[in-house]
Write a protein that binds this DNA or RNA. Structure first.
Lengths: 127, 127, 127, 127
DNA sequence: GTGGTCTAGACCACT
DNA sequence: GTGGTCTAGACCACA
């Protein structure tokens, strides 16, 4: 499904959350498609089941997936995704932090712009 | 000198590091100018001296400041700042993470671009 | 794993750093092998955990080891080790300082050469 | 007379000691030549007089200089210099430490040898 | 006074 | 359990 980078500073559960979000939003995972069970996914990406459990709980809380007692976990319709203003502001803060660090590293405004364009262009599935 | 946001996700020491980097790179702190002593700064921002010490060590390791036995800590010449490829890649990864989150939240490429332009324009000291 | 010499001029954390570097570079610690946890190593060498933590941070910053949230600390691939020109120059300065002291002590060029050959030959693991 | 490097990790008093030793051993300062007074030297190298005082005490203790009440401080005959086995061992330990760091940095035995030859050859005044 | 190191003990998030 | 951060308090050498 995806790979976990164990050397990454990002926590494993966050990596799972973000990977799944990407697959849902980009449409790779289709509405009402069955997600792998906690155990299955945990085994596949060689991670503790509790960690996958935690990620699923977060994803469900934000409306990316839903679970049905005894049947399993499924992909929600994209209209169900809940995004708060705070989420946007947090993403903005993250980006600002990254840009600040480039400034501290001595990059010029133009070099920074180019680097960011580069990042944006990497994402092909964009609307 | 600057304020610490105790509610911020960023650790206190990281906030100190980033604030000082900003002051050095923007030229507010001049080469060979004396930095506040560990204890002074600790008192000013109401933080434990060890925390300031830690931040100063990091800043020294990256060449933003240097310390002299029993005399104090001073601002390095900007040419001394050590920036590695890895540092740039890390900043890039942070920005990518923020942009990913905006994508997961449903923003379009154009909305993302506008938000980022906004962040970049906030920084007045930029060349 | 190794012993700390509490009477040594070198600080405890520096001794930990250098010992671990040696074990990594010589291959005694293998890539991706788990390091003892901060608390374990602290107990083994009867030192405060914070001191080990500090050493691990330095080692991580230089690419000898990496840590993973809640999982532990691991040995990096040797290709990840970051060595800067400044590091080499610092080692050179240390050696120069030692040689200077031998000169001040009245040793001849040849006596100094012999003493250094001796030191070099002590290191068996060398390629 | 010489310059102090305030960015150096070496303490200022140690720098003074080593610089003077060098001048005495190499013969630039001749036997019974008058040394600058503590105040004079302190002013010349822009350092606290207490620090120069301390350096002079060390130099006198090791026989590089001698002081005569009310007349000033003078250069000793080189035969007066006291060198203990411990001094040699300490210098050896310093060199070993530098060589170790080169090993940790990944240099080969041959590269290390070349670097050290380089350092030795820098010193022209050698017997 | 300055920076530097260490200990002890606590708290946090992640697995 | 793991690493990460912070506080409090102490001690040291250097200037």
């Amino acid at each position: 499904m995806f790979l976990i980078d164990f050397k990454n500073r990002k926590s494993i559960s966050d990596q799972i959350v973000d990977n799944v979000k990407g697959l849902v939003v980009s449409g790779v995972l289709r509405t009402d498609e069955k997600m792998p069970s906690v155990r299955e996914l945990a085994e596949e990406i060689t991670v503790n089941p509790n960690t996958v459990q935690k990620a699923y709980r977060i994803l469900e809380g934000q409306g990316y997936i839903y679970s049905s007692q005894g049947r399993g976990t499924f992909v929600s319709d994209r209209s169900q995704i809940r995004v708060s203003k705070e989420d946007i502001l947090e993403s903005r803060a993250i980006i600002k932090d990254g840009i600040d660090k480039l400034y501290y590293a001595g990059l010029s405004r133009e070099e920074t712009r180019r680097l960011i364009e580069d990042v944006i262009d990497e994402r092909e599935e964009w609307t």
